[in-house]
Design a protein around this nucleic acid. Sequence first.
DNA 1: GAAAAAACGTGACCTTTGTCACTAACTTAG
DNA 2: CTAAGTTAGTGACAAAGGTCACGTTTTTTC
Lengths: 226, 226
Amino acid sequence: MIKEKCLTCHIKSAAVGYLDETQLRILGENCAEALFRKGEVIFKQDSLSSNIIYLKDGLVKTSMEWNHKNQILNIIKAPAYLGIPTTLGDKINHYSVSSLEDSVVCFIDINTFKMLIDRNGKFAYEIIIHLCKNELKHYQRCVYRSQKHVSGLVADTLLFFSNEIYMDKTFKLPIDRGEFGDLIGTTRETVSRMLKEFHDDHLIEMKGKIVTLINPDMLTKISMSG
Amino acid sequence: MIKEKCLTCHIKSAAVGYLDETQLRILGENCAEALFRKGEVIFKQDSLSSNIIYLKDGLVKTSMEWNHKNQILNIIKAPAYLGIPTTLGDKINHYSVSSLEDSVVCFIDINTFKMLIDRNGKFAYEIIIHLCKNELKHYQRCVYRSQKHVSGLVADTLLFFSNEIYMDKTFKLPIDRGEFGDLIGTTRETVSRMLKEFHDDHLIEMKGKIVTLINPDMLTKISMSG
DNA sequence: GAAAAAACGTGACCTTTGTCACTAACTTAG
DNA sequence: CTAAGTTAGTGACAAAGGTCACGTTTTTTC
């Protein structure tokens, strides 16, 4: 039965792990699952939002547009909640989310979510922890972005994909050069030049979007020293 | 009686407003109030933390140090919670907080705080809202910082102090030029030059740290256009 | 209230990165 | 397979802002 989908779901978030059977059943009745193909927009900045989104599978980017420029705030791998801040605040999405790879997403009714926070302290606590971790990560990212040179940021990003997203020294970049620039606050051209430099210095191997880190230690050094 | 200090406190946070008498009494028994003079460090990056801090009165800055450079993350006016993310995460402070003006602060035992989240859904919800608002503000700040030119950021900052901190066109900057630079990711010298430019263009009046916004509309324009 | 220290202003110069323009390579749709 | 549309690489140049050096003003301290 569809109503039991949350009860039997094996990709539960830490928070949902604390729900009892009744609560899981209510959650199941108030959420809907959807598939987004690579490149599709899951929700868009400035539109209204009345759902919390749980990314069950896939990879997405969150981004903010301002003055015709786009900045990627974060690249998020499942499992994770998306848009808690944007939905619980004033119901207007302050940033956009789109999928970088085919992604499965659960839309959770906001009132159900609020009710769960109200009735289940452990659930609320896990949500708080999730928000806290995010905030710290973002602080870190923000400091790096404004203090490191582009070389350091490009190195950071390559290491991020290798160590945190794909767990492999060889991976396919899920973003193009322009998005790479938007992620670290620079331009398409500068990213190109930097990647070529890393390639010429034998730190990475590259065939289009396929990257292999040959000398991750050196990349780490570059990342550290700015 | 000291034990009743939270019961009778008139500067309660929205969250604490939802506590019942028993919970307020417990809170009162597990918190301590302290005064920090201007310039004092309330807590320091990399040190251990086992308290949530409620800023009852005053003005503080939060900052992160990296590679001998300092970045001010935020300037926060009472009333507000400080260091929820840093304390609920791994107990290590990931940033420092110091007072820009004499400030009164309540140290709340972390286990008491957790207990209140667990037992009072409305309290938990308010904390979540607080974290969400913070996150959105920080996203915004981060995008601005990396996309606007220095002129726009200096204008932003002057408007911020005028509109959000002091509610007055004339105010005394609580930070020196170097800190002003740390706040917007530039240097002491560049801030000096920019302020002089604004002064020469009759947008502001200045005597040392005392600033008067003469043409806030123009400053807003400069802020908007980058 | 004088000496020392901190904060500030300013000019000259240099580096990093952005911008523009153009070409090449790769993707996609028919 | 081929034309059209994307995406990427690269050179020349410009500009914003960082760095350094030094002089001045303000604040602190004794």
